[in-house]
């Protein structure tokens, strides 16, 4: 649309890469002047806004932040007589729990991993130190081995099956035979909506993602959805007023009321989020709304697309069992090094 000369005032930014692309191509209006002039306080973004800056120039404001949580099917746990997952589990405990509940009553799978790399290995960035762009991927080994072990023990649906059937994660969880699923927070709104449409009828809740031993509980990773102003817009000032309201303290509460998680972090927002109809009414789920630390899923980089291509290709090789994990990691290191050369 932008290449077509569209004059819409604002555009939603879904991928970090888009910010870079549009900034490079001159479609996005730099926001630094507006921020300075209106005294907009960026602290509510808890350090996520640099992800929308290219060369220290802010091009977009974070609108929604969809960090990852663990969804679980309360009904299945009740039926099996097993305690719910908590906000403070290690990955080992998570694996044990999944193995325990698999096969009990109507539970077919203890957990479900979607096919994305972010659903399997991205958890490595939760420690706030490792990233997907540093060219060093041995931190992913732990998670690949975890996922493949769980496949082998029958606790999760095999990757090849999910991929071949193009099974959507909402379909997987909503069949009601899967006990747990790590997924992005955006899924809450879908779940609430789908219940209204009668697509399922079990109870569910959320907890924080499991963590590694040396990583604090409540750490997560996530992605941002942002808004930017079109350089070709005829109403840039009005646009700024709108997006600064939308992403700031007031607009974020409105967003929260629809069940979506705004990027802005505040206790008011958390309250609104928890009060949306259909939101699980337990303390755990509410506590999951306030992550202690959110790392970005994958940052911006000049060669982001190429790195992503390499990582995704190796991801499929590892998950289909075509090469073993150690080899796969080595390939990632080697090929990304070539890209970065």
């Amino acid at each position: 649309m932008l290449s077509g000369g569209d004059t819409s005032d604002i555009f939603m930014v879904k991928e970090n890469l888009d910010v870079m692309k549009w900034a490079q191509q001159g479609f996005a209006k730099p926001l630094t002047d507006y921020i300075a002039n209106s005294g907009f306080d960026m602290s509510g973004f808890v350090g996520m806004e640099p992800n929308y800056a290219v060369d220290d120039v802010q091009y977009a404001l974070p609108f929604r932040s969809d960090f990852w949580v663990l969804f679980y099917n309360k009904t299945l746990f009740d039926e099996a007589g097993i305690a719910y997952p908590t906000n403070d589990m290690t990955w080992e405990q998570y694996e044990a729990l999944a193995n325990e509940i698999t096969g009990k009553s109507s539970c077919k799978y203890g957990a479900h991993n979607h096919t994305w790399l972010s659903a399997v290995a991205n958890f490595a960035v939760c420690d706030g130190v490792n990233t997907l762009l540093d060219g060093e991927y041995s931190d992913l080994q732990y998670f690949y081995e975890l996922a493949l072990r769980m496949e082998a023990s029958g606790a999760i649906r095999p990757y090849t099956e999910v991929k071949a059937a193009n099974l959507h994660y909402s379909g997987a969880f909503q069949t009601g035979d899967t006990a747990m699923m790590p997924m992005g927070y955006w899924y809450v709104a879908t779940l609430i909506n789908n219940r209204k449409e009668g697509l399922y009828d079990f109870d569910w809740g959320t907890t924080a993602l499991p963590h590694k031993d040396d990583v604090p509980a409540g750490s997560s990773f996530g992605n941002l959805t942002g808004v930017m102003i079109n350089k070709a817009s005829q109403n840039k000032d009005l646009a700024w007023e709108y997006i600064s309201w939308l992403c700031g303290p007031e607009g974020s509460q409105v967003t929260a009321a629809t069940g979506n998680r705004p990027a802005w972090v505040s206790s008011e927002v958390a309250d609104v989020l928890a009060s949306v109809e259909g939101f699980p009414a337990d303390e755990n789920s509410k506590a999951a709304l306030i992550p202690t630390q959110v790392s970005i899923e994958i940052g911006t980089h000049e060669k982001l697309a190429e790195i992503q291509t390499v990582l995704n290709e190796e991801h499929t090789m590892i998950m289909t069992g075509e090469i073993d994990v150690a080899e796969g990691i080595e390939e990632m290191n080697e090929r990304v090094a070539e890209v970065l050369e």
Binding site: K21, K163, A305, T309, E313, E314, T316, M317, T320, I323
Partner: peptide, 23 residues
């Protein structure tokens, strides 16, 4: 989608990737 890995990477999928993902 070209997987597993690059086993089914073809000329035009490669072109598409370079043109529209890597710009």
């Amino acid at each position: 989608e070209g997987s597993p890995g690059r086993a089914t990477k073809m000329l035009v999928t490669y072109i598409y990737d370079v043109a529209f993902n890597q710009i």
